[in-house]
Design a protein around this nucleic acid. Structure first.
Lengths: 199, 199
DNA sequence: TGTACATCAGTGAACGCGCGTTCACTGATGTAC
DNA sequence: TGTACATCAGTGAACGCGCGTTCACTGATGTAC
């Protein structure tokens, strides 16, 4: 019995799986994720439609993987950047890190901001959990106080994260000339919220 | 030559058109708008697929009509409520009006919050313009100063409107027990932003 | 070392189905005179 | 008033197409002994 497939085989499978995830992101940024088909994604990834099933049961499972893996990585990265920043620089560091993520992977960020309020309940739930975790990280970075991550985050941090996501959504459309203004407004609003004593 | 079709004929056409818009909203709240088909919507509206073309060239045109008419009416209503409120009650009145709109027409609000950051650029553009108009109304209601509505709104009002939309999105999913907390957090955050002197 | 066997990602053919779109038609309504 | 004509929302048949899914198969890789 084969217990451990060779590293090469696992790597090759991982490569094709990654191609499917990437193809889905690319096409979703055009049609929207809800408009994607399994055949369309497989074609874009360069495999036969029937091979899709070697990786995911359906498109929804693929979407869940995108959120857990790709989106999760981005959001965790933002949290780490916030926590590593000096207290009075948290808003600036966080906003710049988020805008850098937009520049680095537009398709992923478009998917994230869209599905956070999209029609698939499962996607919304996962992405709201990511938002919540980031709000806790932001709160900790600004106040130095760690709260129980299973409780809802404080209102200020929660609102700041919402503005951060929406700022990413706007940056996706903005012409470069407008981006500086959007960045400064966003930093200002987050600072206002985090400076206040809130519920 | 017929110059003016009878009132009855026009009303009947309007009725069927309304049924199409309503059917699209209902189905979009399940699949997402991007996943809708012309046949599916026509079936839900109770007409033959071929009759769809008597009202819209395609689904995108239908979506544009939804935004211009239904979404526009809701947003304008919110702006009027804000302007009619006493200055120190603007945030409360606005948030309660928005949450009332969610309760009144969940499907429409789900469509609005989703397409504001969805994959269709045309939808985003129209809905951002609505957001911008509401932000101007909010600014005028709080400060008593009318700005040129063709300029970008002040950062505080713009951020407040973003939080308002996101609050609606959350309210769509929240269990009733959580809704009071969401409402209070939202009012608090909007008040914080509007109280500050910003860019 | 060689041989028999197991695993499993990827494949091509085939299926039934719903899709968007076209077309010529119907029938109710309104106009011209 | 009656008659001939125009308008136009709605229709059913038909089209070609891409979809999701199933199936039995291939061939590379790894294991057992």
């Amino acid at each position: 019995m084969v217990l451990r497939p060779s590293l090469e085989k696992k790597e090759e499978k991982e490569r094709v799986r990654g191609a499917l995830l990437r193809a889905a992101l690319r096409l979703a940024s055009v049609h929207g994720f809800a408009g994607l088909g399994l055949r369309e994604v497989s074609r874009e990834a360069g495999i036969a439609p029937t091979s899709f099933y070697r990786h995911f049961a359906d498109m929804e499972e693929l979407g869940m993987a995108l959120i857990r893996e790709s989106a999760g990585r981005v959001v965790r990265g933002l949290g780490e950047r916030a926590r590593a920043a000096p207290r009075d620089q948290v808003a600036t560091v966080l906003v710049d890190a988020a805008l850098a993520a937009v520049a680095l992977d537009r398709e992923l960020l478009q998917f994230m901001v869209a599905e956070r309020v999209g029609a698939f309940g499962g996607f919304r739930t996962l992405l709201r959990a990511e938002s919540s975790a980031l709000a806790h990280a932001l709160h900790a970075a600004v106040t130095g106080t760690l709260l129980d991550p299973s409780t809802p985050p404080p209102a200020a941090a929660e609102a700041a994260v919402i503005l951060l996501f929406d700022g990413c959504a706007k940056a996706l459309d903005d012409v470069p000339a407008r981006q500086k203004l959007g960045r400064d407004h966003l930093i200002w609003a987050i600072q206002q919220l985090m400076a206040a004593e809130g519920p």
